[in-house]
Amino acid sequence: MSAIDPQIAEQLAQDLPPADFRRIIETFEDDLSRLSQQLEAAAIAGNWDGYQRAAHSLAGAAAAVGAVPLEQAARVAMDPRSPHPPTVVVPVIRDRAQAALQELSALVARFDRR
């Protein structure tokens, strides 16, 4: 399964100059790093509000760049009725974030060459 929705991410890359697209992906990378730490810290501390807030921001950031699988996992974390505990969801989010970043970086490189 692809880690990004090519329609959304490529549309973004086509709509913008390469420098702007690169800056968005760098911002996304910063968001991922900060929000993943917040998410894991909140999960360890049992801080449910903080966990939900971080998951909500992660979902928003992922949606912006078409990282749909990551967005879906973050929405599971946001959902108070979800049967999946943080110990299950957090590693999934981490893996999907990593995969999304790799594919987006490849996309940046492809559009930089054009």
């Binding site: 702007d20 800056r23 911002t27 996304f28 968001d31």
Partner: peptide, 16 residues
């Protein structure tokens, strides 16, 4: 917008 990535996308779209 409280999510920096979302804010950056909107700003980039409107820049020109």
């Amino acid at each position: 917008e409280d999510t920096p990535t979302q804010a950056e996308v909107a700003r980039s779209h409107l820049r020109d």
